[in-house]
Design a binder for these strands. Sequence first.
DNA 1: CCAAAAGTGTTGAAACTACACCCATGG
DNA 2: CCATGGGTGTAGTTTCAACACTTTTGG
Lengths: 222, 222
Amino acid sequence: MVIPNIHEFEKPVVTVDIVIFSIIKGKLHILLVKRKEEPSKGEWALPGGFVKIQESLEEAAKRKLLEKTGVKDLYLEQLYTWGDVNRDSRGRVITVSYYALVNAQDKNMQLSDEGAKWTLVNTNLRLPFDHSKIVNYALKRLRWKFEYTPVAFSLLPKTFKLSELKGLYDTVFEKDFDKRNFIKKILSLKILEEAGKEESVANRPAKLYRAKENISPIIGIV
Amino acid sequence: MVIPNIHEFEKPVVTVDIVIFSIIKGKLHILLVKRKEEPSKGEWALPGGFVKIQESLEEAAKRKLLEKTGVKDLYLEQLYTWGDVNRDSRGRVITVSYYALVNAQDKNMQLSDEGAKWTLVNTNLRLPFDHSKIVNYALKRLRWKFEYTPVAFSLLPKTFKLSELKGLYDTVFEKDFDKRNFIKKILSLKILEEAGKEESVANRPAKLYRAKENISPIIGIV
DNA sequence: CCAAAAGTGTTGAAACTACACCCATGG
DNA sequence: CCATGGGTGTAGTTTCAACACTTTTGG
């Protein structure tokens, strides 16, 4: 068999960059890391790195996630691939961006080192490279996913109160949904099942729910 | 300034592959080209090729489109990036897939050569590499876009009859939408304006419409 | 006058919005 | 008994789905 030499071409470098979302104190945050190398050394940027020749894109993203957060099982989805010629001063670098949802209560969760921090999401974050664009894009996608799929549960512990779920939607959409309508809508989807009650709280204890096992991906919540 | 040598890593090859949709005789087709090289030489596959070191991903996709169809201005959108380690027998090849919508009535449209053909879309196309997966993914995205955005007009001539627009939705969704409800819905969106009447047809002439200039991207049609 | 495609309204069902008060618990 | 957050129903409005006949034109 003739195998043409596809390696004659000058090749770009391929990286992955990840927007890691989590809820900290009820607010939406993303993980940033302090860059250890030029360019933009010392600045806070999205975690990411080179794709090894023997790992798939998703494997590369998972490897980075594990390194930075210690968390293995989480929601991970490809976002978009950014390939402008001059997006990186070191040369031609194409980056495949991903976003991930991690549950901050996860017991395995721990930031790798002092060079990582959770930052409140807002659309005016100033980040190096085209990372601001990537974050804004991730936020759009996250909202879309929340609206049409049951992805929200990835940001919550296994069992949760409906008020926590509503709070999550409130934060993600920067709205204050109507409590009664929200609960009505969610329950009508039949994707939740009851999972006991809150205990020893200083007020009426809330019912707990969990997501059913095989819930369909498209729901249409908002 | 210190510029670390990011070129020490073994680098993958990056290509673009394009799913080019068009409507031929009222049916949804995609463009396939006959491969001139191994692997899968002689088989029909998606048009695509290497990304040059000095062009963006989108430029690469546009270049390929122009080569294959002669059409310059069209709807082009990135789909997904496929990066499994063994997706190409020649070595590590990452492909950024795009889809494009071309209006088959476009006067610039002409297939480049005998090595290209329009093929009726169905979900059982057997194509080399992971191209079948890419086509199915493109079809999903196309439906979503049709449902929520006014992208359909990219597949029609500048002015068109509502029955043509409905026919397009019928094909894309493999349904037969109700004529009255469809027209009601489309007109209620106020994204169309009247543009005269059909002439010299053997039946009642239809009103023609065109898409307004600045229509918002999200509509919710179906 | 015939064939062909265009055009046009109504009704019942379902989904959505807005809105305010009582309940259960711990301290 | 008080403070805190949990829980619940209705009515008006809008959107959606189903459905069939008449109109205009050229031949």
